[in-house]
Amino acid sequence: MSKTVPASILSVRDLRIGIGNQSDLLHGVSFDILPGETYGLVGESGSGKSITGLSVLGLLKRPLQVTGGSILFREQDVLKLNKRERRRLRGDRMAMVFQEPMTALNPLATVGRQIAEMFVVHRGLSWAQARLKAVEALETVHVPAPDERARSYPHQLSGGMRQRVMIAIALACRPDLLIADEPTTALDVTVQAEVLKLIAELCQREGTAVLLVSHDLGVIANMCRRVGVMDRGRLVEEQDTRALFETPLHPYTRGLLAARPRLGSRTISERGRLTELDELVADTQRGRDAPTLVTPRGMLAEAGR
């Protein structure tokens, strides 16, 4: 199986997450992300998409823990690293952008300092040098008047600006992998569009791979080449984005695509009912693997079924 897979930047194999030793939240999830690729994980709350992202970074909160499988990052199993080595990887080689930028930023430090910190910790620069780099970083995320903004505190910025700062922090050390968990869910639509564009632009330029976790099919379609659909702790389908929308294979995916209200779908004559998810997918089909997963690299039999 691994022969058909080119050197992926991240390779999650049969990942299981549970409380204690029971794997009851994630039942064996496998996917690969190629260098520079943007991979989407879509699912509803409780599907396990967020804990998948957190486990890659080693940020699972107790009592949750990885109970099985492996996470290969640059062909190295991060689950076998000790705490210090993992910490060094975080922020440097892999970084994260969270949903709520206000809680993810330190309210008592200027944003410039928080970006500069990345250079000091991971690159060993002096604070003076790092501060210059921080202003540069703010410029790359298109923050107007970066010199001045570097001296602002998080509460002085708007939601969109804060998320730009988060992105600047995440991408400061040019990581190989960015994990973005609902990066725009807390933002207004017009701001969301700008932030998504920014992530796409920067990651494309630097060749950063992105794991985008979202509940929003629109955001996923906008950003990702390939999508994994998660439901009840399983990756139930993985396809090229276009193929997924055109020919969804798993009943859950079909239900999910049909059940969302779509812009421009209403006809003038009547206000029709929306299709509901449970009209299309039986409860027994939920959270079950399809016999095979179709990937651009051929059939990928799901392990640990």
């Binding site: 639509v189 017009t190 929003d216 379609a221 276009r242 929308f245 812009l263 421009g264």
Partner: peptide
Amino acid sequence: DWHSIFSRPTHPYTRRLIGSVPDPDAIL
């Protein structure tokens, strides 16, 4: 009425709002 707003969005802000919706079908 809903149809005028969505079929003839006129104010620049309305247009920006509608244009910002990440609509998978339109994107693909």
